[in-house]
Nucleic acid binder design. Structure first.
Lengths: 121, 121
DNA sequence: GCGCTGGTGAAAAGAATGTTAAGGAAGAAT
DNA sequence: ATTCTTCCTTAACATTCTTTTCACCAGCGC
């Protein structure tokens, strides 16, 4: 698939998810946007990775919770939302022109790189 | 880690209903028309799914109500109608060339993809 | 025409998510 | 051990979106 990457460091490049300008290096838990490192914390990275497992598909909060924290999500728990908020902020700092995490009301979130709604053109 | 494997519930390629250009992904609660996402709300999706259970068959309002809200439909309740209206609008936005929800006067609705009357005259 | 059913637009009510900040736990540095 | 730093969680309030409800109009069938 990726000849250039394979030439460099076959071992480390193995576990990475690439979605447009977003790259998640699962091995060392790093998120890169447009090649620039977004300083995500461990939890933030885990939440993002949970979404990245099913790109462009809606992932329920419950699924995210189960995957990151394990077990059932307590009723009215806001942990996922708060982490999503910070993920958005940090990704936007690096790449303001892109939107990655989309809300699906009443269900959950969906990860897909899309040009942001900056009416500026 | 994850104690119960049952918690993961990976509804990856969950079952979906396909009716011509319309696809309902029940797991994700997403509706696609011609491959394009129609941003239905949860209720709207539920109503559409209730109709989709019996494609091309007339489904009474009472049945839709029982399936979505549960219980008997209050007399003079317009909830189903209002949601059908919005479903129609949103589907038409994505695929103006198709009509999906057909009214059966005095009875209910029927879901079937048909070319719309764009004859414009 | 008349009564009834459905279409439609919009306000009101309700629920979910966005956002910010405080407080505490855990580890690093001193 | 104490202080400093970072991160996670929780709570509270703000905002946005959804659902319900209502009023009025249009169309169907008698």
């Amino acid at each position: 698939m990726n000849t250039a990457a394979a030439l460099r460091t076959p071992n480390f490049e193995e576990d990475s998810i690439v979605l447009g300008p977003l790259e998640l290096r699962l091995g060392d838990r790093e998120a890169l946007v447009t090649g620039v490192r977004a300083a995500l914390t461990v939890r933030e990275f885990q939440v993002l990775a949970a979404l990245a497992e099913r790109p462009d598909r809606v992932v329920t909060r419950e699924d995210v919770y189960a995957r990151v924290w394990g077990g059932r999500m307590p009723h009215r728990d806001r942990a996922v939302d708060v982490h999503v908020k910070r993920i958005r902020t940090k990704l936007a700092q690096v790449a303001p022109a892109w939107m990655f995490v989309h809300t699906h009301f009443g269900i959950g979130y969906r990860l897909a790189p899309e040009p942001s709604e900056t009416g500026a053109n």
